[in-house]
């Protein structure tokens, strides 16, 4: 599903359905490829603003964005949100990610359903992905 379809699905979901969808995403987050483990273990690519240890790795392959992430299973809400982003954006073009809605958390209704206090870390993760994609483009 692309991000617009995911937004639509979340907008139609009630509180329990939202939790169930996030939990499904959380369980489906692909394991971080071995090549990134060393960087993660030395603390590189951690999203500092998020209280949960979230690690995001972005690279470009044939003009497409590849997105890899690691989030502990004990933080299922953040893990679910990150897995949603990986699902939506892994394989997208940099333009698609740049043009994705800035207020994604609001569009998904997560601030309304989960409470605003939990949202800061999630926005930080989302901004980080956008900025990493730009960085990857500059390096190329």
């Amino acid at each position: 599903m692309n991000i617009e379809e995911i937004i639509e699905e979340f907008q139609e979901a009630d509180f329990q359905e939202t939790l169930a969808m996030l939990l499904d995403y959380s369980e489906g987050l692909p394991k971080l490829p071995e090549e990134f483990e060393e960087a993660r273990d030395t603390g590189y690519n951690r999203v500092a603003e998020c209280e949960t240890p979230v690690f995001i790795f972005v690279r470009l392959e044939d003009g497409k964005v590849r997105l890899f992430a690691d989030v502990p299973e004990e933080s299922p809400t953040v893990r679910g949100f990150v897995a949603l982003l990986v699902d939506a954006f892994d394989g997208s073009t940099p333009d698609e990610i740049e043009n994705a809605p800035g207020n994604l958390i609001n569009s998904l209704g997560l601030d309304q359903k989960l409470g605003t206090r939990r949202m800061f870390g999630l926005s930080a993760v989302y901004s980080r992905i956008k900025s990493e994609v730009k960085k990857a483009q500059r390096i190329q």
Binding site: L19, L23, S26, E74, P76, T77, G115, R117, R118
Partner: peptide, 20 residues
């Protein structure tokens, strides 16, 4: 974490979330 209970909990336990 509002979802942690849903990952697995003590069998007879119910969830009460501090925020929601």
């Amino acid at each position: 974490d509002v979802l942690l209970y849903d990952v697995g909990h003590i069998e007879s336990a119910v969830k009460v979330d501090w925020q929601t």
